[in-house]
Every structure is written in C-alpha cells, then in structure tokens.
Design a protein around this nucleic acid. Structure first.
Length: 493
DNA sequence: TGAAATGTTGGGGCG
DNA sequence: ACGCCCCAACATTTC
C-alpha cells in the first residue's frame, strides 16, 4: 500500500450505502489524515452487474443524497455525483485529481464485492492506496462462526456467538469541519447534477405518500431514533407486533442507505436506558436489538450465499410446484385480495414505501401459501416498492416465510389472515386506515367481511365484489391445498 | 415470529 | 349424595 500523503491531491471518500457524516469510518479516516477530502457518489444503475434499485429505493436515495450533499457543504466540503460504471469511474477520477487514496465502507453483495475488488485492483496499479472499512454492520460476516469455524445457519446461536465477541465499537464522532477539494471545471469524468439521475418520479408523481411519511437523510434518521428511544420503545417487546400502534422504530430505510449505523443504534439504545431518558424495560431494548440482530444474520447469510435472492437456500424447495397466476398476483400487489389485513398492508406499502413487519409476514405468507406463488415474485415486488428494500433482509426474510431459508418457519406454518388481523389489529384501526371502503363494518366482521350479515354490509355501504372484493381464495381450501403441495417436498430429494 | 385438530380436565347441571 | 354428561378451558399433537 502506498502512503496516502505521497500525493498533493485529495483523499477520495467514495460514498455508497453509508450516506452519513457521523460514525462513518471512511470519512473519518480521510478527515483525520489532514489531506483535503473529495467526496463522491457513483450511480451505476446496474451497469456493474449490481441489482438495479427499485423505484421506491431510488426515490429514497435522491433525498438521502441531497441531504448528504447539504451536510457536507455545511462542513466545508461537497459531494460530486457521477453516473456510470464505478469500475471505470473511480480509478479515472482518482487519476484526474491526483488522489492520494480512496476510502470506502464495505458492502456485502456478490456484485458489490466484485466491483470493489476491481476498483481496488485498478487503483493499486496506478499506485493509489485503497482502504475499506466496516460502516454497515455490528459484526461482519466472517467475525461470527460456529465452534468448527463455519458460517452459522440458525439465528439464536448466531446472535449469541456474535454478542460473545464483544460489544460493538463506539460510533465515531462526526467531523465538525471537512477541508474539501474544490472540483475543477473541465476535469473528466464530469460530475452530473443529482436531478439528472432521474431518481424521483415526475410524469406521474407517485411519491406524495412517501414524502408525507418520511424525512430522508441523516438528520431525519437521528430524529427518528431519538423519538423511538425516548417515547416509543417502552412496551416494544409486546407492541412491536401491533401495526395499529406506532411501536416499531421505522429505522429500516435509514439503515438500508446508511443514514444511520447499527453501532449508533446499539449504543444510543443502551445509553437511553442507562440515562433514564427512556423508561423502556431491558426486555424492550433486548427485543429491539435482536431485530438489529436479524439484520446482521441476514447479511451473514447473504455473504455466504450470494444468490440468496434468487435461489432456494434449501434446495429441496427447487421441486416446489409454484403456480403462475397473473390475476392473483395483480390482486395481491394492488391490495385487492378480499382479506382486509393483507390488503391494508399492501396498500400501506404502495402509499408509503413501507409496511409494518408483522404485516409483511402476513402478506408474504398469503402470497406463498394461499396463492402458491413463487416467493421470488413477492421478493421482487418488495424490492421495487419498499424504501428499505435491502439485499440481505429482503431475500432472507422472504425465504424465511417460504420455509426455504435458514432457520426458516416450517412449511406448515400458514398464517390465518383473519386470525392475525383479529389478534394484532383488534380494534381494526390499521385496516380502517388503509382499507377505508370497509371502515364502517363492525369490529367483529371487519377482518372477514364476507361473513357480515346483509344488513351490516348495507349499513356499511359495501357491496362485496363491487366496492370491496370477495376473497380471491377460500382460506380453508387454500390452506389444505398448500399443505398438500408442501407435503410433496418431504419425499423429494 | 401458527393454526387446527385432538386430547384432557374439571366444574356444574341434572336425573 | 352420586354418577353421568356436557362443554369450556387448557394442553398436546399434528399438519
């Protein structure tokens, strides 16, 4: 490795899924070096073999980059945005500005790793130092193993082994000022305006519900975390399953794009309890942090199973007789299945780019077991519509529900959408918010409108099949059908 | 981080 | 007073 200080040029910080100034190891190291810092972002749009971002993720990314650029400017630097192949651009940029080094925080997808390797190689060939850091995880995949040294395939031992390696490092302080590297006009390759990436929708602007629901960027992430810790974490152990309550952290999109780090979440959670700022119980905090643990586990799985989003973790599922039914899929996507809790979730997703985790499990179970559609079809829909669509979490969670994943739910665990609705949305607030056309039904039939008496339907202004769909499948039939189909896997190789 | 079917138990009605 | 039956309520098992 060459010395970063050998050149008069800047140190480049290559931002990717770490769109923050605080606890950013690559940025911190660059600032501490004393050299001027050039911050860049390269939007490759799938050029380098990475999975192209979904529409909701792109929308999120736009706001996140905009915020990051603003924060960097306040600190004295700037963000230069490029459009093209990072493998091509990063070394060229380094050469054009005479960079002494390029720093970045690691990622864990197969394609992402391949890109980083190629960039590192190209930089070294031109004597530019390259160094990567952990900014995304509490425990990187290779830090956690079984006693035999293998990857861990079950969550509980994974999380226990991870925790046993020690507490996560303290978050790094945010640089107060950054000596920027002014971009000289005419330098090639040329940066572009953020707007030219066309990450936000225009023709039909469908992002209104998302704008209402979210504040993108690092400041929004910190505010969300504080609100959660101070006033929402109390009762988390019980209430996290209640989509009718504001009881989850809603940090997922911020974690996805690195506007906050899991280290910050971990330490802030403990500090909130110890300082008494939060009156949550220790069990609330542990349950919350174990959700962060599931994220860690997902990354562990993804790292050792790069095709986690495409291939059954358990190969036995390769023989499963998935159906193809575009009408059923379309009804599911639109939230028109006739099962209120399912429809509520899918409409919340479409409108806000986010869905409560309990409801994600319900709608996923419904797609896989009731409709018998391939989990990859659902995974793809989530990838396109979730603002927190994460290469590890999304793939691992869909496989978990399908039963094909590591430490997965057994195939016979079929959620009853009526029972789940009654249990976790007992007063129907959630369903009434997202499926307003049935809001006037009495509680006792809200989760199963087809069982409502004719006079209840009349009074609620509902004509089943017209103003709200009849169930697209009968629960009992669908359950029996799914069990039978999954039964065939037992005898399969 | 299920649901449904089946089994068991125990209180109360009633002959 | 006693046994029998019914059936919640809870526990276990099966899918």
């Amino acid at each position: 490795m060459t010395s970063p200080s050998s050149a008069a040029g800047p140190i480049i910080v290559w931002f990717r899924d770490d769109l923050r100034l605080s606890d950013n190891p690559a940025l911190r190291k660059a600032v501490d070096s004393g050299a001027p810092v050039l911050c860049i972002y390269v939007f490759d749009d799938g050029l380098d073999g990475q999975r192209p971002l979904g529409a909701a993720s792109k929308w999120w990314l736009h706001g996140s980059l905009e915020h990051l650029a603003g924060e960097l400017e306040k600190a004295g630097a700037s963000l230069e945005v490029f459009k093209g192949s990072a493998i091509d651009f990063v070394p060229r940029i380094a050469k054009a500005v005479g960079a002494g080094a390029v720093y970045w925080n690691r990622r864990y997808t197969e394609a992402g790793i391949a890109v980083d390797k190629a960039v590192k190689q190209a930089l070294r060939e031109t004597d530019v130092a390259a160094e990567s850091f952990n900014g995304h995880l509490l425990y990187e995949p290779w830090e956690v193993t079984t006693k035999a040294g293998d990857p861990v395939k079950v969550f509980t031992p994974f999380w226990r082994a991870a925790r046993a390696t020690g507490d996560p490092a303290r978050p790094l302080p945010r640089p107060r000022t950054i000596e920027g590297w002014p971009w000289k006009k005419g330098t090639s390759p040329a940066p572009v305006k953020l707007a030219s990436l066309e990450l936000e929708p225009t023709k039909p602007d469908w992002a209104g519900g998302m704008r209402d629901a979210w504040t993108r960027g690092e400041a929004g992430a910190q505010e969300r975390l504080s609100t959660f810790l101070d006033s929402e974490m109390k009762g988390y152990a019980d209430n996290r399953n209640r989509p009718d309550m504001a009881s989850t952290s809603r940090l997922s999109p911020y974690l996805r794009f690195g506007e906050i780090s899991p280290r910050q979440v971990w330490h802030a959670g403990h500090a909130a309890l110890e300082s008494g700022r939060s009156d949550a119980g220790r069990d609330d905090l542990d349950k919350f942090l174990s959700e962060i643990g599931w994220r860690e586990f997902s990354y562990h799985l993804l790292f050792y199973n790069p095709d986690l989003a495409r291939r059954n973790f358990n190969a036995r599922f390769d023989a499963f007789p998935w159906k193809t039914d575009s009408r059923a899929l379309s009804a599911w996507e639109k939230g028109m299945t006739g099962y209120p809790i399912v429809d509520a979730g899918l409409r919340q997703l479409w409108t806000t780019g986010w869905m409560h985790n309990r409801v994600r499990m319900i709608v996923a179970s419904f797609l896989i077991k009731h409709l018998m559609l391939d989990w990859r079809v659902g995974e793809a829909w989530f990838w396109d519509t979730l603002v927190d669509a994460d290469p590890a979490n999304n793939a691992a969670s869909w496989q978990w529900v399908a039963g094909s994943g590591a430490d997965a739910a057994p195939y016979f665990r079929i959620f009853n959408p009526i029972g789940q609705g009654e249990k976790f949305d007992p007063k129907g607030d959630y369903v009434r918010q997202w499926v307003p056309e049935i809001a006037m039904l009495p509680d006792r039939v809200l989760h199963s409108p087809w069982t409502a008496a004719p006079h209840d339907l009349r009074r609620a202004n509902i004509e089943l099949g017209k103003t709200y769909p009849k169930p697209i499948v009968d629960h009992d039939d669908a359950r029996a059908r799914a069990l039978k189909a999954f039964e065939t896997l037992k005898s399969a190789a």
